[in-house]
Computed example of a mutant assay.
Amino acid sequence: MVYLEHFCEHPLDYITAFYTSEKVRIDSCPHCHSCRRVHLHGVYHRHVIWYEEIFFIPIQRHHCIHCGKTVSILPSFCHPGFQLALPFLLELLWAFFNRIPSACALAHQHRLFISRRFLLCMNRLIEYFRICEDPLIVFPDFWHKKAIKLLEMVFSVGKPHIFAKRYYDHFKKGFMAH
Rank of each mutant, 00 (worst) to 15 (best):
174 G>L: 01
18 F>R: 05
11 P>C: 01
44 Y>D: 07
161 H>W: 11
42 G>A: 10
148 I>C: 04
83 Q>E: 13
4 L>E: 06
119 L>F: 04
171 F>G: 02
29 C>A: 07
136 L>T: 08
6 H>S: 08
98 N>L: 11
55 F>R: 09
114 I>N: 06
116 R>Q: 14
137 I>W: 04
161 H>C: 04
156 S>Y: 02
176 M>H: 01
162 I>W: 07
103 A>W: 12
25 R>H: 13
11 P>N: 04
137 I>Q: 05
79 H>E: 15
157 V>T: 12
178 H>N: 09
61 R>H: 00
89 L>H: 06
128 Y>V: 09
146 K>T: 00
131 I>F: 03
103 A>F: 09
2 V>R: 00
147 A>N: 03
105 A>R: 10
105 A>I: 13
78 C>S: 06
52 E>N: 15
75 P>Q: 04
137 I>G: 09
161 H>P: 01
8 C>V: 15
61 R>F: 04
14 Y>P: 07
142 F>D: 12
70 T>N: 07
51 Y>P: 06
14 Y>G: 09
128 Y>R: 05
57 I>Y: 00
130 R>H: 13
126 I>T: 01
164 A>E: 05
137 I>E: 02
10 H>E: 10
104 C>D: 15
176 M>I: 15
5 E>T: 11
17 A>K: 15
163 F>Y: 01
17 A>S: 14
8 C>Q: 14
35 C>I: 11
103 A>I: 13
77 F>M: 15
46 R>W: 07
15 I>D: 03
107 A>S: 14
16 T>Y: 11
143 W>K: 03
84 L>A: 10
143 W>S: 05
153 M>S: 04
175 F>K: 02
74 L>Q: 07
13 D>Q: 14
127 E>Y: 06
108 H>D: 12
135 P>V: 01
27 D>H: 09
94 W>R: 12
1 M>K: 10
142 F>L: 05
116 R>K: 08
90 L>N: 11
145 K>T: 00
144 H>E: 12
96 F>Y: 10
16 T>W: 08
93 L>I: 06
52 E>C: 07
74 L>E: 10
95 A>E: 15
2 V>G: 02
35 C>F: 07
54 I>T: 15
39 H>F: 01
124 R>C: 00
175 F>P: 00
36 R>W: 08
131 I>N: 09
99 R>V: 14
126 I>V: 12
55 F>L: 14
27 D>N: 13
30 P>V: 00
37 R>G: 10
143 W>T: 03
75 P>L: 10
